[in-house]
């Protein structure tokens, strides 16, 4: 039956070809998008980006207020989201490992991880913006913290589970209370993995636009006050890219360049370090 063997080999060859083509297809878009962003963005880079504020239509300027707003909100989101995320992750992996609550939370945490970020933005709008009566950097940071939370929960849960049980048993055998075992021994053993997850979370929230639209809103002028509307890099990119003005497009590309380099750089660095650690 040589012809049957031939068709089977042909099918195998076609599957091989298809899988290779699919991979090339995926990489093709990655390189196209990166090339566009880097080429347009590089041309738009100049020193004013870091020294001047976002300009009115039709004139030149920089992104200083947006950088400040982004950094401030990311840092505040870290301050809110990281301890809560690690505490919840600790419950899932340690204190409540076999409890029903841990199962439910673990399940819903993964749902929250992929839930639409724009809904989180609206949630924080109802939660913080409506009662306060104004958009603010605090609300923006809270929205970013809620995006960060499930990421930190998942990574700290996984990181703690990787710590061998012998370590816990040895520590308990010495009569050390659980909170000290967890805080002094397990966190230390899981530190690299947890910080990897937090850094990937930072990369994720740095590019989030939708949750900031109705919380931090944006601010064309310099404002260091977090209880006022606050500019951020992604929201400025959105507003300027959607506008009809060339100067604004150029600034949007410059912002896109810096954002992409930051996010992908952080991702690559974290992955390389994590790989070397193994």
């Amino acid at each position: 039956m040589p012809s049957r063997l031939l068709t089977r080999r042909l099918a195998d060859w076609l599957a091989f070809l298809f899988a290779s083509a699919a991979t090339l297809f995926g990489l093709f878009w990655l390189f196209w998008i990166l090339w566009t962003t880097l080429a347009h963005g590089f041309a738009a880079l100049n020193g004013k980006l870091f020294t001047e504020m976002t300009p009115p239509p039709g004139s030149e300027g920089g992104l200083l207020n947006a950088f400040y707003g982004s950094v401030a909100m990311i840092l505040l989101a870290l301050v809110i989201g990281t301890p809560l995320g690690i505490a919840a992750g600790t419950y899932l992996a340690e204190n409540g490992r076999y409890s029903r609550l841990a199962k439910v939370v673990s399940f819903l945490n993964d749902v929250l991880l992929s839930a639409p970020s724009i809904v989180i933005g609206l949630f924080v709008y109802e939660l913080a913006v409506v009662p306060a009566g104004r958009f603010s950097g605090y609300a923006g940071a809270l929205a970013l913290a809620l995006i960060l939370l499930p990421i930190v929960v998942r990574t700290s849960d996984e990181a703690l589970r990787l710590v061998p049980d012998q370590m816990r048993e040895a520590a308990f055998a010495l009569g050390i209370p659980r909170w000290r075992v967890t805080s002094r021994i397990l966190y230390k053993a899981a530190a690299t993995a947890i910080s990897t997850g937090i850094l990937l979370g930072v990369a994720r929230i740095a590019g989030e636009t939708a949750p900031l639209l109705f919380t931090a809103l944006g601010n064309q002028f310099w404002s260091a006050q977090l209880n006022q509307p606050l500019a951020s890099v992604p929201v400025v990119i959105f507003q300027y890219a959607m506008s009809p003005y060339d100067e604004w497009h150029t600034l949007a590309w410059a912002g896109a360049f810096i954002l992409t380099v930051f996010v992908l750089g952080l991702n690559l660095a974290v992955r390389v370090v994590a790989r070397r650690g193994k």
Binding site: G26, T37, L259, T260, L268
Partner: peptide
């Protein structure tokens, strides 16, 4: 990793592109 980077690109960049 390259394919995973596709997931790391912020969606606003996809939008502009």
């Amino acid at each position: 990793i390259a394919i995973e980077l596709l997931a790391a690109i912020p969606s606003i960049i996809y939008g502009m592109w």
